[in-house]
Write a protein that binds this DNA or RNA. Structure first.
Lengths: 217, 217
DNA sequence: TGACAATTTATACGCTCGTACAGATACTCT
DNA sequence: AGAGTATCTGTACGAGCGTATAAATTGTCA
């Protein structure tokens, strides 16, 4: 008996609570992963009672999946828009611009003032190494990845699909690491952290573009 | 009341069991992380009763730390040996050889026939995105990383310590991704997986070397 | 062989977990 | 006002968790 969202204010009554629940879950999951978070902690974080979580979020697994899915389209749209902008300006954009277009939207959401988006970005980075969740993520993110790969493949016709896929996988891994493990950079260099992933954008894009080029050469 | 390992066969009586416990824990943690594994599951996996885990492994946290620490020195030694070999042959080795020396030992253990080493490599890759465990890993792996960075820094004197640290962090992230998320390559390219991380060695080293070079240029 | 220590078994305790649900409350529409 | 639905509260249940420990077993050495 799911409540369909309407505008008449009737069925929207609990929508604000639902948002609070999803936001709280997003923060908790982003900070501590799936297993280390309990529904009771999410309830406390959201400022609601235990039963409300089940009422609005379903089971823990359903809640997690909802959080995973909720923001995907926004991110995909940003990546598609950047790609379209790029292609409208030049027919054969250079590799670095393509990689920049793919990476920047994620860096931006991970650096936003909005803490919810930061939590979501953190969550994606966290679960990326877990096969258990990869199956859920794949259909959400693969289509856009394929669009990028198709264009990169057109520019580098000598590179086979496996090399292209490998290069993008390593690129994504680097991108996620910048969000999930940024402390390591400051830890290794003994310099203070720059504060947000976006401020490492040039380094990251350089690294990935250089890697792509060398691999496809 | 810790049993010191001796050779007289007396105090070694339970050593075989201890190994079985640690091996089982390594497999479980490597496959499902920390929180999703229970001591009872480890006991079943090891073929011992519940109490034995506590007797030989201490608390769950102690057990996990022991598993994390157990194999570090072997890996560090392999990396140091490769670096020494490289330096004995040439005073200024090229960047690609240095990165290859750092990455290959890990790829090798992750590709070994020995399942325990594979589980350990998987475990490292899995927890790398978790700040909770990074603090434990840092003192174990940072020293060797610094040795490599010192030499790379000598070859590229114009690169600051932050760029060096960032490049190595992204390199390590790529390396771990190859162990933890190799399915993604076959998933994106719709080609069969090559079977072991070591068979992607050239791609990985190319990618990281290319990234390093472009970043430090 | 018998004393003694190391190891293993079996069980119990106090918690927290995810889930379910009956009842209370708030809101909407007739 | 009153019926009816949506939302929220409070509580309970069974299961599994990490840990501790008494008792049983095994092995060692005097």
């Amino acid at each position: 008996m799911k409540t369909e969202a309407t505008t008449d204010g009737r069925l929207l009554r609990g929508e604000a609570t639902r948002e609070r629940v999803l936001d709280a879950a997003e923060r908790c999951f982003g900070e501590r992963g799936y297993d280390d978070v309990s529904i009771r902690q999410i309830a406390t974080e959201a400022g609601v009672t235990l039963g409300v979580i089940g009422f609005h979020g379903g089971s823990k697994l359903e809640l997690f999946r909802t959080v995973l899915t909720r923001r995907v389209e926004t991110l995909n749209a940003a990546r598609r828009k950047r790609l379209a902008d790029l292609m409208s300006r030049q027919d054969r954009p250079d590799l670095r611009s393509l990689i920049d277009a793919y990476l920047t939207p994620y860096l931006e959401i991970a650096s936003r003032g909005d803490q919810q988006w930061r939590s979501y970005a953190r969550l994606i980075a966290r679960i990326a190494t877990d096969d258990r969740w990869y199956a859920e993520m794949r259909p959400l993110y693969d289509p856009v990845a394929h669009e990028y790969l198709a264009i990169i493949g057109r520019i580098h016709p000598n590179a086979g699909p496996e090399k292209l896929a490998a290069a993008l996988t390593l690129t994504v891994a680097s991108m996620l690491a910048l969000v999930a493990s940024r402390i390591r950079i400051s830890g290794l260099s003994e310099m203070p952290d720059r504060g947000s992933p976006l401020q490492y954008r040039e380094m990251l894009v350089d690294f990935c573009a250089g890697g792509f080029e060398k691999m496809l050469r």
